[in-house]
Simulated scan of single mutants.
Amino acid sequence: MIQSALDKAGLPSASVQYIEKPDRELVSQLLKLDDYVDMIIPRGGAGLHKMCKENSNIPVIIGGFGISHIFVDDSADLTRSLDVVENSKVQRPSACNSLDTLLVHEKVAAEFLPMIAERLKGKVSLVAEPKAKALLAGFDDLRDAGEGDFDTEWLSFTLGVKVVADVEEAIDHMRVHNASHSDAIMTNSLVNSEKFINSVGSAAVYVNASTRFTDGAQFGLGAEVAVSTQKLHARGPMGLEELTSYKWVGKADYLPRP
């Protein structure tokens, strides 16, 4: 369909191609075609991203992978936070900006965790560390968090849950567990919201909003190419402008450099 549209528009139909072979043999070959390809944007799991970063002769934009967190601060409006957490997890769990880990301040955990358990009952499986699990007793689909669970991008109806002492511990957890994509804080504290914004190195950071907003169309960029989690040059949702580069042009009247 895309090739047909290109052809009708008078553009080379072969400029868009589909690789049908599911293994990565052809990907390995593609990564070496720097004479023909200007940029690689891998869309897939962590293994594909790692392979491209380590083997490509072509600039690679890494995006679409990262553990997404929501931290519920002790100052948050807990009732309104329920809607944001549910939306971040349930609306489209297979998306790269869906919620993977819920962090809850210890001062409100005893109140909030039973509330979120009731809201997500029958919708989500919970994976909890001991403090959180003790407050989720009675939840039907609950298990202990094991090694690697808080490093897992679930892409499913599974949610990790952890109780933390404060915003500093939440930030520390996020730094250890690959918070690089979309992360949010629920808070009514300006101090804590600014600390979160300035300390979290994710491509998209939210205050009192769903992680599901990380999207090119939502940000007014038009069609989204990818969500970049790199430091340079494009971060977050990428549209056409982020795919383009520039050059310096100097025009003069036979001017030597002084």
Score class of each variant (00 low, 15 high):
Ala117Ser: 13
Met115His: 00
Val72Phe: 07
Leu103Glu: 08
Arg43His: 15
Ala76Phe: 08
Leu126Glu: 09
Leu99Gln: 01
His105Ser: 14
Leu78Ile: 10
Gly47Phe: 02
Lys133Gln: 13
Lys89Ile: 05
Val85Lys: 06
Ala128Ser: 05
Glu111Trp: 02
Cys52Ser: 14
Leu102Met: 13
His105Thr: 06
Ser75His: 08
Ala110Phe: 00
Asp73Leu: 01
Ala76Tyr: 03
Leu99Ala: 11
Lys123Gln: 15
Gly66Val: 03
Val104Ile: 15
His49Met: 14
Leu48Gln: 09
Leu113Thr: 03
Ile40Lys: 03
Pro59Ala: 07
Ala110Ile: 00
Phe112Val: 10
Glu106Gly: 01
Lys133Tyr: 06
Val84Lys: 02
Arg119Asn: 12
Arg43Lys: 12
Lys121Gln: 15
Glu111Met: 08
Gly44Val: 01
Phe71Ile: 00
Asp77Thr: 14
Asp74Ala: 04
Cys96Pro: 05
Asn97Leu: 09
Val72Trp: 03
Val108Tyr: 10
Gly66Arg: 02
Ala110Gly: 04
Lys123Ile: 14
Ala134Leu: 14
Ala134Asp: 14
Pro59Leu: 07
Val127Pro: 03
Ala95His: 07
Val127Asn: 04
Gly138Ser: 09
Ile116Leu: 14
Phe65Met: 11
Met115Arg: 13
Lys107Phe: 03
Lys107Trp: 00
Gly66Lys: 02
Pro130Asn: 05
Ile67Asp: 00
Cys96His: 04
Arg43Leu: 02
Val127Glu: 02
Leu82Arg: 11
Leu82Trp: 09
Arg92Glu: 08
Leu126Asn: 08
Ile116Met: 12
Leu126Thr: 09
Gly138Asp: 12
Ser56Ala: 15
Glu118Ile: 09
Lys123Tyr: 14
Ile116Tyr: 04
Ala117Lys: 02
Lys50Met: 11
Met51Trp: 08
Met51Tyr: 14
Leu48Thr: 10
Val85Gly: 04
Lys131Cys: 13
Gln91Ser: 15
Leu78Met: 10
Ala110Trp: 01
Val90Lys: 02
Thr79Pro: 00
Ser56Asn: 11
Met39Phe: 06
Gly64Glu: 05
Phe65Ala: 14
Val104Phe: 10
Pro59Val: 05
Glu118Val: 10
Ala76Ser: 13
Ser88Glu: 04
Leu135Lys: 08
Leu113Asn: 02
Ile70Glu: 01
Leu48Tyr: 11
Phe71Pro: 01
Ser75Asp: 06
Ile41Glu: 08
Ser94Ile: 06
Pro42Glu: 09
Val84Glu: 03
Val85Tyr: 02
Gln91Lys: 06
Ile70Ser: 00
Glu54Gly: 01
Val127Ser: 04
Arg92Pro: 01
Glu106Trp: 01
Pro130Val: 11
Ala109Leu: 12
Ser98Leu: 03
Arg43Tyr: 12
Ser125Gln: 12
Lys50Glu: 09
Ile67Thr: 01
Lys53Ser: 04
Pro114Tyr: 06
Asn57Gln: 09
Arg119Cys: 15
Val60Trp: 06
Ala134Ser: 15
Ala117Leu: 07
Asp73Ala: 10
Asp73Ser: 08
Val108Thr: 13
Phe112Ile: 06
Glu118Gly: 01
Lys53Arg: 07
Ser94Thr: 15
Phe112Lys: 07
Leu113Pro: 10
Gly63Asn: 03
Thr101Ala: 12
Gly66Tyr: 01
Ile40Ser: 06
Leu113Val: 07
